[in-house]
């Protein structure tokens, strides 16, 4: 198996176009598990970890741009926590320190798992995904980018550059349910935001539908919101939990998150 390691974004895009079968790897916390377990044997890997343009984050006119190479450890910084509290809290729930040092936002979007921890908090922050190829650049709403369980709208020659989210959108929180107290894949997760200025409640959940799903309502709908979110879920039974429990937990989480955000 070849490993292609571009040193710049231009080189990365050219390699991506020339080797559409080369699997992009950014961080590798999902992909390396698949390789170790002999579940995947791609012809080649396109190693994006050395592309400086994908790292870090910036802020302009209330829009926060998170590079695809941003790690969960980066996301837990105080500055980002102040702008994107739910996203930062979600990052703290990911794996162990070693995994958080390695795992990236770009990787989470690339895997597009319904359990992806970064996805619900991004969904409640009006998230757009920046995609680029040698043909040019396009932006997609995150809802349109996530098209199914572990499926996204990335074209074979495209790379995920960054996500753009709106910072400082009212109060937010993130919660994740798992059967042990750290290092779990979400049995069900919830990001919730209360935007008093615009009078909007937004909730996005993970692991309770084929894709992470956004639900919004008017601020007046606080009382019915837990039920509304639970009703939007279509959870299944699997080795991590039952569908009935996921729906139940979602109701409890939404009520608690509302309480947390409204009293803050």
């Amino acid at each position: 198996m070849d490993v292609l390691t571009p040193r710049s974004l231009d080189e990365a895009l050219r390699l991506r176009a020339a080797h559409p079968d080369a699997l992009p790897i950014q961080g590798g916390t999902d992909l390396m598990v698949d390789l170790n377990f002999d579940r995947r044997r791609p012809e080649a890997l396109l190693n994006l970890n050395e592309v400086a343009e994908l790292k870090g984050w910036s802020r302009e006119n209330g829009v926060v741009r998170l590079g695809a190479g941003l790690t969960y450890t980066d996301a837990m910084s105080a500055k980002l926590a102040a702008l994107l509290p739910a996203f930062s809290e979600a990052s703290r729930t990911v794996g162990s320190p070693q995994i958080r040092n390695r795992g990236t936002i770009g990787g989470n979007l690339g895997t597009a798992s319904p359990a992806g921890d970064a996805l619900p908090p991004l969904l409640i922050s009006e998230c757009e995904v920046e995609l680029q190829s040698v043909r040019g650049e396009r932006r997609l709403a995150l809802e349109s980018f996530l098209i199914g369980p572990k499926r996204n709208a990335l074209a074979p020659d495209e790379l995920i550059l960054a996500v753009r989210v709106r910072g400082g959108l009212g109060t937010q929180t993130f919660m994740k349910v798992g059967p042990r107290n750290a290092m779990v894949i979400a049995v069900v997760s919830l990001a919730l935001g209360v935007d008093r200025e615009r009078g909007v409640l937004s909730a996005a959940f993970g692991s309770a539908a084929p894709v992470a799903t956004l639900v919004t309502a008017a601020l007046d709908d606080v009382d019915s919101f837990p039920e509304q979110v639970a009703a939007a879920a279509s959870p299944i039974d699997d080795v991590r939990g039952t569908g009935a429990y996921r729906r139940h937990a979602l109701r409890v989480l939404v009520a608690r998150a509302l309480e947390r955000c409204l009293t803050r």
Binding site: E89, R92, T93, M175, K176, V177, N181, A182, R256, E259
Partner: peptide, 16 residues
Amino acid sequence: AIRLPGGAGNTTRGEG
């Protein structure tokens, strides 16, 4: 919160 049930999942501040 991390020392409460749910741990790093941030699910409770004491509720329940």
